[in-house]
Write a protein that binds this DNA or RNA. Structure first.
Lengths: 233, 233
DNA sequence: CGGTTGTTTGACGAAAATCAAATTGAGTGG
DNA sequence: CCACTCAATTTGATTTTCGTCAAACAACCG
């Protein structure tokens, strides 16, 4: 599944599934790998956009700050995902921050170069447009969910999403080691509340916890929590 | 400012600010005007995408349903805005609904035709991509705000946003006649709560209300509400 | 005029945030 | 390997905010 560790093979990256042949060697000339330790910040909200990143190995959280101690995690990125494309536009300022959740290697491409390439590679531009469209749909869907679900539903939703995105290991645990603090930032609730509700979910045998690992053992129950509350007549 | 009423002059539409000359007459051949009465639904969540709309006159709400009686208004559109582009993608299904808030005329372009045109008009594709990028930034910014602001802050934010988008009339009132119910759907809170908090804002002389019209009279106070709550040490 | 729909208001309860404190755990330096 | 520190986890008590419910009233419309 995983390619060699030290070379960014863009064929494994999202965008390049749609790259035409001229594009691939072009990228090869300019590619540049960077690695980040766990917890290290890849780029920060408010910074000028310097480049776009393709995630080669590792996991990353993309988040927006609220105050010094609160943030909202917008999404997670894993091997093969793109980072930093949210900064595209007139004033090329990153609207979000990205931090490595574990040892991470990214393939870095300078912004100007990428922009120029977009101008030349129309198929890529088209795909990128469709990619944005899909992300916009996701974002707005999640916006609705965060507003209308209760916290337990949001937790169930978050866990189901994470399982979809990261899959499960051989024991059935969600293949991601997320701190409770990050989980609460993703869910949009306080640390303590998330903790208590996770306990409830465990008590109800909807999930199972072993150390930092979480397994969904009753999918039906989990899905029930993310249903719109039917209106009583 | 406003062009003639019965012909869709795409030059007044968002996208066409970036259209090249070949594109304009092309559109002219295919354009089709449709009008909607106040409250009428332009398209619905879950429907197959039939086309894209340019709003010629009127105001529209774009929203997502939660249950039979709750929704979240994603954004408002006014004269010159695009509608329906959120449905672009693999499975061309509208992820949102759109309803006219007042008498509305749209310029309709069939989806297939628009897609084909995108393939031919790369500048347009590029601009549309950047437009998506901007919308994604907005959506995620608002997502954070909806999660972390208290309801009063969200109301203040909503009112400031609406003033920016729609401007004010000669008396200083926000130039949009939004029902309280729609305001609460935009804010993501219940009708009653919004009502009470608007009263508070009025009592504090942050806003002024006259019938259905709202004026912001103390901008500083309003802005204070949308600040991240500083963390007490 | 009834009947529906939107507005206004208060009482109450549930959900979640805040606060406080105890406990564990993970590094760190000696 | 052990103490030490600091961060993360766990838990309960308390408070706040907001949603729910109910009811009265105005406004609008056929």
């Amino acid at each position: 599944m995983r390619k060699s560790k030290n070379v960014c093979d863009l064929k494994s990256c999202f965008l390049c599934k749609s790259c035409n042949r001229e594009w691939l060697p072009f990228i090869d000339m300019y590619k540049q790998n960077r690695s980040f330790k766990k917890g290290e910040i890849i780029f920060s909200e408010g910074e000028k956009v310097e480049g776009i990143y393709f995630l080669f190995t590792g996991k990353v959280k993309v988040y927006k700050q609220w105050n010094e101690e609160k943030e909202l995690i917008i999404r997670f990125a894993k091997e093969g995902d793109v980072l930093g494309h949210r900064g595209f536009g007139n004033n090329a300022i990153y609207p979000v921050s990205a931090a490595a959740l574990e040892e991470t290697v990214v393939c870095y491409i300078a912004y100007d170069f990428f922009l120029t390439s977009l101008k030349m590679n129309h198929e890529l531009t088209y795909k990128l447009m469709m990619f944005y469209s899909a992300e916009l749909q996701d974002a707005e869907h999640r916006m609705r969910d965060l507003v209308h679900m209760d916290t337990k539903g949001k937790i169930a939703d978050a866990l189901l999403m994470m399982r979809t995105q990261f899959g499960t290991d051989e024991n059935g645990f969600i293949d991601m080691n997320l701190s409770r603090r990050d989980l609460s930032s993703f869910v949009g609730a306080t640390y303590e509340t998330v903790f208590k509700l996770i306990n409830e979910l465990t008590a109800e045998k909807a999930i199972r916890i072993e150390g930092k690992n979480i397994q969904i053992i009753n999918e039906k129950k989990m899905r029930a929590y993310i249903q719109p509350t039917p209106v009583k007549k």
